[in-house]
Amino acid sequence: MDLTQLLAQYPHEENRLIDLLLDIQKQKNNHFISEQEIQMVAKHIGVSEAKVCSVISFYTLLSFHPRGRYVIQICRDIPCHINHSASIVGTLEQLLGIQMGQTTQNGLFSLEYSSCLGHCDAPPSMRIDGRTYVHLTPDKVKAIISEYRGRTP
């Protein structure tokens, strides 16, 4: 969807700023907010660009930098850690040929650490593109990644 069309769906109210930014990111394949988008959002909501930037920099789910088509977030907190999340991180790094915090060259995957995803009853867990995967094992991770690889034309 075109940004102008998207903006038209939102009222000129500051309290909808976070929703709007999340929505913009969701519509884009590289899940980030560009400088031009910051300018347009600021104008639409009626706040300064600095204010929009302060919101983007504060919230983990919002980004100034281009990310992969699929952002993979892996929990790094104790309940997952003591249930072998490190082996999941290792498997992903090896499969994708990147380190945590990086994006694959083809722009398909980004690897990020996340705070607790709230699925401690089924550890370890990761979240990709709005879906949470639990009870992970290296084999399960391999299957999930090849499924995502198969999705793209």
């Binding site: 909808r16 976070i18 929703d19 999340l22 919101v55 504060f58 919002l62 996340s114």
Partner: peptide
């Protein structure tokens, strides 16, 4: 319904209020 954007501190009462108002929490 309002969604957070990845911030633990927004569970704190006033941080949550700031976040619903569209500001950093």
């Amino acid at each position: 319904l309002r969604s957070g954007a990845g911030s633990y501190v927004c569970g704190e009462e006033f941080a949550l209020i700031e976040s619903i108002e569209g500001k950093p929490g």
